[in-house]
Write a protein that binds this DNA or RNA. Structure first.
Lengths: 158, 158
DNA sequence: CTGATTGTTATGATAAATGATACAACATCA
DNA sequence: TGATGTTGTATCATTTATCATAACAATCAG
């Protein structure tokens, strides 16, 4: 069991929007080509990121931009944008028998600990900013000389 | 997105097996009544716990027992028994475009961090032993006076 | 107005979790 | 040995979630 790819897709989108800002018009088509998913998925995810106040999207004209300083966007923000942040990390079985000494107390024993696990994951995610990722990305790009050139769908050039 | 209830079910099973040891025969029927799921689910989960070396199950005669000291069983052991421990915490989108400076480097940027998140969760889970849970359970039982009495399916008494 | 794009809905394919039934294999006991 | 109860598995149906795709109204720039 694992979290859906919406999270890594959202991170990919933010990195691409930041990286190609000014160079290309980051439409759902353009981003879909980079992420390699259907443009509808991009539009949906972009909508979630917009609702979370992380990006602005130009309806009609097309293209997205970061709405905040990359230093101020953490992975936890991204996570909350695309996942239900209230949801527990673990799905608890529905109806433990309340008449049973174990079933009647299992929630009291486990709930606090499960919440703590989730809180720790939150802290981990909150510790990484988009800026951190941008820095690493630039380093990788220098290493692989993968920068300064257009991707195939370069027709979307600004 | 969340982990399946198999984890909390497995924890419930271990607590019940430990708690009712000697008092009742902990058959899949008995445990199913406490957990409130189909006995087949119990047998399946019990099989996974057995494969992980956490319990022994008496084929034919019925009933399960802990195979290890509760102090030596951690939540991480239980997690590994019922979930794929190798699997990443986050599902990465399948084919980021390698021709794109972002798509071609996103794995290099993210993989290490994602692995770290998983590792930290592992550490958290490994920090809690079954013994810790048993202790809390006994405390709750005293508080609620929910101990020393039979659950409805008491027909399985030893 | 035209053309490109977003926002949204609907549909289908696929996969995973869960519930339930059925039954052979197994162990105990009379 | 035969009856009984239980485990180990296989199978099927249901539900839920994800993802791809098509379609189309609303939006905006030129």
């Amino acid at each position: 069991m694992q979290f859906s790819s919406r999270f890594t897709i959202a991170v990919h989108i933010l990195l691409a929007v930041n990286e190609f800002d000014g160079q290309f018009k980051t439409t759902s088509n353009f981003l879909g080509n980079s992420v390699n998913v259907n443009p509808v998925i991009i539009r949906k995810t972009l909508g979630q990121l917009k609702d979370a106040g992380l990006v602005t999207v130009e309806a009609g004209v097309g293209g997205a931009s970061l709405a905040k300083d990359p230093k101020k966007i953490t992975l936890w923000d991204v996570f909350c944008a695309v996942e239900d942040k209230k949801e527990d990390l673990f799905h608890f079985h529905e109806n433990p028998n309340p008449e049973c000494p174990v079933g009647g107390n299992i929630h009291a024993v486990m709930d606090g600990r499960l919440r703590k696990f989730k809180r720790n994951l939150q802290k981990d995610l909150d510790d990484v900013t988009l800026q951190d990722l941008v820095k690493d990305l630039r380093k990788e790009m220098r290493k692989n000389r993968k920068f300064g050139f257009a991707i195939p769908a370069a027709a979307d050039k600004v």
